[in-house]
Each structure stands twice: as structure tokens, then as C-alpha cells.
Nucleic acid binder design. Structure first.
Ligand SMILES: [Mn+2]
Ligand SMILES: [Mn+2]
Ligand SMILES: [Zn+2]
Ligand SMILES: [Zn+2]
Lengths: 151, 151
DNA sequence: TTAATAATGAAAATGGTTTTCATTTTCGTT
DNA sequence: AACGAAAATGAAAACCATTTTCATTATTAA
């Protein structure tokens, strides 16, 4: 385990140990472009290392989230979904398109310029008016996906 | 129960019965400007009519949600929160400012003009590119509220 | 009034997530 | 290499918001 990607070093710097389970969970998140639940990850990891338990998945995901390595989403369809923070994937800043029927989640990165303009203005104004220190934002669009429209 | 506000008529038109419990839940949502959980509503209703059970609260909220009368939010702090749809309150279109520490939720209605511009452009573009029929959107800002900053 | 249907409360079940606890692994120090 | 403290782990149990079940009650239309 001597190599240590940049995230691994960051992880160690935080004071945590870089175990097989943790590396494996990170790798799974890195390879996918989907939004995985804890159980999705558990099933994926089970093929590689059946000894790793679901509890460890939950614990690792919480750890990763608290240290800004993964983002946790509660879209309200039963289970939380996780994805690697944008800086760790090749991904750009993005938001989500959510199908109200089949619960499919699609990333989109369009209209960033317009978004930035609106967000910057809103953030500044809201910080001033409501006294919040704003750190993050979330934009979701809800609708019906093309597959579900066919039915 | 002969009077029947506009929402009540709408409710009956949908084919449902306008019972005491349902009216009471609606009234509670109408009077508050907070974002209530099912249990918040249960506790509020309990003082007025202790016979109404928590199950009815959940069932009514689901019914109201499915018919566009209330909006359900899963902010990810354990329990879902409900608020009356904008058209039923005196409220304008609004979004949320969420404190990551104390989980306080603040409504804001500022920057609607800028928001509309961005949303319209994004919606049109995304519908075209991803084939979704977009029906709704959600914008949240996350940060630290003024009270939590003091500590 | 009557019968069909809808709504209800209490209790039990559900299911994703967290906690507990005994055991194992890791890592800095000998 | 061996040691010992601290961290990480898995299995099982607990948790807890929400849903389901089911027997009873309320509402409605005829
Ligand atoms: Mn995403
Ligand atoms: Mn609100
Ligand atoms: Zn769909
Ligand atoms: Zn706060």
C-alpha cells in the first residue's frame, strides 16, 4: 500500500488510517459515474473482498463526507446516495436532474456561467441580509425522464 | 363543516373527504411559518384534538403532498419537513437557507428575477438536451447561521 | 335507514442507519 | 521482530421515522 494517491495522503494527513476497505470504497466511487447507496457499494465491494461489512461502508462514508471527500445526497427515495466530491473526479461542478417516476439521477454541468452569476449575487445578498456564512449550494430539477415519458 | 375554504373544495373535488383531522392539519400548516415534521404537527394537534393519531398525520400529509397542497422536504436531518404549497399561503415563491450546525431553515424570496432568468434558461436547455419534462426545481444554500457563528 | 366506501387509531412491521462490544489490525516505539 | 496503545472492524442488536395491517368507526349516496 505504499503508493498513496493524493486523496490517500490527504486522508492520512487528517489522522486516519488508509485501510484496504477504505481504499476499496474510494476506488468504487472513483470508477462509477452513478450515485451509489451504501448498499450499492457493499454489493460492489463484496465481489472483491467479501469480508468487508456494511457497517464499515457506512462508517467510511461518514468519515469521507465529514472530510469533504464525498458528498451525501438525501433525495428522499429511501436511501442516501453518495458521490465523490468534484475535486476528486474528473468532473466539473454539476447539479442534478431527477426523475419523479423512476428516481433516476442525471448529472448536468451546463449553464455554469449563468449559475455562477446568480449564485454569487444571491449568496452575497443573503449573507448580508440573513447573516449566514454560506458554504455550499444545491440545485435540483425535478421532472419526468425520457424513458418514463414513453409509458 | 359547511363553509369550505377554497382548498377544502379542491380537496373534495379530488374525491376525498374533508374530515376534522384533515382540516386541523391544514390549519396548523396555514398558521405556522416554520417547516414542521409529522411529529411537530402531531404535538400541535394533540392539544386541540387528542384523539387524532400520528398515523393519520402521515396519511394526510402524503395525500396533501400528492395533490400539490403541501411540499415535503427531506433535508437529511432525520425527519421530513412539510410546508404548505406557496399558492395556499400568502407566501411568494421561495427557497431555503439551511444552517449546517443547528439545522435551522430560513425562507428567502430575494433575487427572484435573477433566479427566474437562470431557471428558465437552464430548464429549456436541459429539457432539450436530456429529454426531461421539468416540473419543479429546488435551490438550497447551506452555511452557518448567525446564532451558530457566535459560539 | 341502509349498505357501500373511506377514514381512522393502535399496534405491529419495516428498513435504512447507528450503536455496542468483543476482536483484530495498524503503527510508532522498543 | 516484538510490544502496546489506539484505531478500525464485523456481527448482532438497537434505533427510530415511516408504513402497513387490521379491526372499528365515520361519511356518503341511494
Ligand atoms: Mn452527481
Ligand atoms: Mn419554506
Ligand atoms: Zn424516469
Ligand atoms: Zn445554526
Amino acid at each position: 500500500m505504499g503508493h498513496c494517491h493524493k486523496w490517500g495522503q490527504k486522508f492520512i494527513d487528517f489522522g486516519f488510517r488508509l485501510t484496504a476497505a477504505r481504499e476499496c470504497i474510494f476506488e468504487i466511487l472513483l470508477k462509477t459515474d452513478a450515485h451509489l447507496s451504501a448498499e450499492d457499494i457493499y454489493m460492489a465491494i463484496h465481489k472483491i473482498n467479501p469480508a468487508i461489512g456494511l457497517t464499515t461502508i457506512y462508517r467510511t462514508l461518514e468519515l469521507l463526507e465529514q472530510n469533504g471527500i464525498v458528498r451525501k445526497f438525501e433525495f428522499g427515495h429511501g436511501r442516501a446516495k453518495y458521490e465523490l466530491n468534484e475535486e476528486y473526479e474528473g468532473k466539473k461542478h454539476h447539479h442534478h436532474l431527477i426523475c419523479e417516476k423512476c428516481h433516476k439521477i442525471v448529472d448536468y454541468s451546463e449553464f455554469v456561467k449563468e449559475e455562477k452569476e446568480y449564485i454569487k449575487k444571491a449568496e452575497n445578498g443573503l449573507e448580508k441580509k440573513y447573516g449566514f456564512s454560506i458554504k455550499d449550494h444545491l440545485i435540483d430539477f425535478y421532472g419526468i425522464c425520457p424513458d418514463c415519458k414513453k409509458e
